[in-house]
Design a protein around this nucleic acid. Sequence first.
DNA 1: ATGAAAGCGCTAACAG
DNA 2: CTGTTAGCGCTTTCAT
Lengths: 339, 339
Amino acid sequence: MKTSVTIKDVAKQAGVSVATVSAVVNEHKKKVSLSQESRERVLTAIKTLSYKVNTQARMLRTGRSNTIGVIASDLAQPFTAESVSLIEQEVNVRNYSFLLSDILNSKGLEWRYIDLFKQKQVDGYLFIGASNEFDNKAIVALIENGIPVVLTERDLHEHSVPCILVDNVKGAYLATNHLISKGHERICFISGPESNLITHERLKGYRKALAEKNLTHFEQLEPAHGMGLKHGYDAANKLLCSQPRPTAIFAFNDMLALGAMKALREAGLRIPEDIAIVGFDDVPVAEFAGIPLTTVRQPRVKMCHIGVGMLLDILEHKYPKGYYAKVILPPELIIRQSS
Amino acid sequence: MKTSVTIKDVAKQAGVSVATVSAVVNEHKKKVSLSQESRERVLTAIKTLSYKVNTQARMLRTGRSNTIGVIASDLAQPFTAESVSLIEQEVNVRNYSFLLSDILNSKGLEWRYIDLFKQKQVDGYLFIGASNEFDNKAIVALIENGIPVVLTERDLHEHSVPCILVDNVKGAYLATNHLISKGHERICFISGPESNLITHERLKGYRKALAEKNLTHFEQLEPAHGMGLKHGYDAANKLLCSQPRPTAIFAFNDMLALGAMKALREAGLRIPEDIAIVGFDDVPVAEFAGIPLTTVRQPRVKMCHIGVGMLLDILEHKYPKGYYAKVILPPELIIRQSS
DNA sequence: ATGAAAGCGCTAACAG
DNA sequence: CTGTTAGCGCTTTCAT
């Protein structure tokens, strides 16, 4: 690998100064006035030498990295993985890079991660998903230091932080109401961990649907101890011991629902005849479950698009200082055969 | 955010020169001789000022980024997502960073990605998974330029490139043989796309098992046009039209198998009574399928550990120039109820 | 419109 | 053992 070509080489080749080269390279940023001629010359020199700016040097000089830190709550969750993939696209389109971390791999070490990213000079942070493991204080500290932060699929109620969310209350309402309309009264909510704010939102929607039909006395909660298949399985097994048994389940997310379905099957229960179930997210595998899973779809693509867009816009000062917005997107009930 | 503290500040605070500070910061790298005293002084200064090295500046100076480029074939595949998560851990442990790209999002643009990463000065590349979309020429070009590259779950037969693989021939053999031992003779292989080298390996194992029992004349191949659930579904539907129908299926991977199961179910076939099926990978959801899926487990954790380890070791010149190895790990047959 | 030059924070000779 | 200093490649005043 021959040593890379620098701005100097280009300048020499084009017979201009480095300043001029820099000017044409960064042309888009400022309305500079360059003569057509030197512009052309520089451009061809760049092409013939196949010059690429050294991002390191630029970062050092400008103090900006054009990189965002993406902190995911659990990459192993299909929903999260897809989000990361989408984010990657958006970030690329806008000519940024991103550093990724999966906080599930470092329970309690979120501070260390943020620190690490800070050291790498990320310009801003994107948090996706709300793992129970995560200490919100770390995010708050960021905000208080004026560092741009955007959250998707996660919220921080009492703070002025931009976040992109599906309407969780409405989604849960839709799911629960659908179950009620199918004639169910005893509907159990397999919730996420207590510490998860989103769980509370969905609980609200669940309760609202129940209340509307005067079913509040049938409310039944079964908190899962995590977000994975196994946790859904365990929760369902516990729930199955309750008397009288619910005739329907609304699970916090699809993975929990899929896990629960295994327990239901093992208990010899038919879905949806003996017990109906609906999930949340609409991960790809939901459609391919033994009994295709009814679920509430989140507008993933839009959420990621808006989330990244907003963060980068903030970084590029396209909003007034202190600006923030909470964007709430509509959920969509996808009815399949599990209900 | 107050302007960050530099090595100069530390030097002043500790009453030493920047060189000394730099020396203690990079202590581990070289057997420098520092007096206990100044070392202590520097260390406390660092702590009180909470100094963090500016990675940008260091990169610029050293020409190394301590960053690797991870190029995944399809993040939406659970197996890949988990690998990324694992890789993240390994990379962190060794104090590196990684840039991630998902080439499925940029069909045919692998060159652009590599270029982008090159511009970000990544020290080496880790390719994971073998999407059919990917043009191996891009990898070959890297290798020929002497840039460190390691592949996991992917191979480049005629090139001297380090790669970490499960024994795909053996895995497929195990799966097929298991099916044969259950009394099956007509076993169809739902293969991956033609262009995928791994598919050929698994095909070999499949054929070997068939040949051993003189079942070669029953060989039946149904290539899937991708690696997703839908592709498995489509492949199975096509396969179901063949007469006589196979009594068992060996699918290239779990997602394909899960997709196929949906088609089987829709056709009114009982699993495993009417038709048995086994997958490959052992993704978490395999165990939670309507009929828990028999599959061949890949030693994910080990593969990622070795892969990252090898790449970083190469970067740190722990191997002689030109060194490479192909590491083949043993697969494990996980028998569940789908067979 | 363009060039000269300073300097971002760091490391690595080289002196002392 | 420690300090001085010269850049790494780039952007950005400030002159011209």
